[in-house]
C-alpha cells in the first residue's frame, strides 16, 4: 500500500518502476496526440490567433508597449494552456478509460507526473511556435539574453502546467470543464504570470538577464505547486 505519507517518508524518491510507468503513460499520450492531432494543432492555432488579433488591435492604436506585448504573449500561453489541459484530460475521460488506469497497480502521483510531462511537451511545443510569432510581430530583441528568456519561459510554463494539470483532473468530471478550469487556474497562476511578465520584460525591453530574486520566485512557485499537486492528486481524481 502506498500513501502520500509513505511517499514523503521515502525521501521523495521515485523508484525506477514509477519512472518506467511515467514513460509508458507519456508515450501513450504523445502517440494518441500524433494520431488524433486534436490538441496540438488546435492549441497552436489559438495561440497564434490571440497574438495576431491582440497585436493588430493594440498595434493599430499605436498603444503597444513592451509590457503589453509581453502580456499578449502570456494571454496566448494561458488560453492555449487551458485548452491543452482540458483536451489531454478528456482522453482519459472518454469511454471511462480513467477507471482502467486507476485500476492498474500504479500510484496516482505517477499519473499526475505523467500527465504533467505530456502537458509540458505540448505547451512547450506551442510556446516554441507562438513565441517566435510574437517576437516577429512585436519586434522583440532577444539577442541580449536568449538563454535567460528561455529559462524564464520554461520555469513559468512548468508552474503553470503544474497547476493546470491538477485542476484539469479536478474539473474533468464537471459539465463546465473549460470555463471552470480557466476560472480556477488563472487566479492561482496570477503571481507566476506577473513575475514572469516582469522578467520577460527585462530581456525584451532592457536587454538584461533576469536576476536571482525573480527566478527564485518562479522556482519556489514551481516547487510548491509541483509538490502540493502531486500529493493531493489522488484526492481530486474521481473515476
Amino acid at each position: 500500500m502506498t500513501t502520500n505519507t509513505q511517499r514523503l517518508g521515502s525521501g521523495l524518491a521515485l523508484p525506477l518502476a514509477s519512472l518506467r510507468q511515467i514513460a509508458f503513460l507519456v508515450e501513450k499520450d504523445l502517440r494518441i496526440e500524433s494520431r488524433s492531432r486534436q490538441t496540438l494543432g488546435l492549441v497552436t492555432v489559438l495561440g497564434v490567433l490571440i497574438v495576431t488579433v491582440l497585436g493588430l488591435g493594440l498595434g493599430a492604436q499605436n498603444a503597444m508597449t513592451a509590457f503589453s506585448a509581453t502580456a499578449v504573449l502570456w494571454v496566448a500561453y494561458l488560453f492555449s494552456g487551458v485548452l491543452c489541459f482540458e483536451k489531454t484530460m478528456a482522453v482519459e475521460r472518454n469511454d471511462a478509460v480513467l477507471a482502467a488506469l486507476l485500476m492498474a497497480p500504479i500510484d496516482r502521483g505517477v499519473i499526475y507526473l505523467a500527465k504533467l510531462a505530456s502537458n509540458l511537451v505540448l505547451i512547450l511545443a506551442v510556446a516554441a511556435i507562438v513565441t517566435p510569432v510574437g517576437v516577429l510581430f512585436f519586434g522583440f530583441d532577444l539577442t541580449a539574453a536568449p538563454v535567460a528568456f528561455a529559462v524564464v519561459m520554461i520555469l513559468s510554463i512548468v508552474g503553470f502546467a503544474a497547476v493546470g494539470t491538477l485542476f484539469s483532473a479536478m474539473v474533468s468530471s464537471s459539465r463546465l470543464q473549460g470555463g471552470l478550469l480557466a476560472m480556477m487556474v488563472f487566479p492561482i497562476t496570477l503571481p507566476l504570470v506577473l513575475v514572469s511578465t516582469q522578467l520577460m520584460l527585462l530581456t525584451f525591453r532592457d536587454h538584461v538577464a533576469p536576476g536571482g530574486t525573480g527566478l527564485g520566485v518562479l522556482i519556489a512557485f514551481d516547487l510548491i505547486f509541483l509538490t502540493v499537486s502531486w500529493l493531493v492528486f489522488e484526492w481530486v481524481l474521481e473515476p
Binding site: K28, R31, I32, R35, S36, V91, N94, D95, A96, V97, A99, A100, M103
Partner: peptide, 12 residues
C-alpha cells in the same frame, strides 16, 4: 474490471 463502457483508448 469489465464495464459497460469499454475503457479503451480509441486512437490506439
Amino acid at each position: 474490471l469489465i464495464g459497460h463502457q469499454v475503457m479503451l483508448y480509441r486512437d490506439l
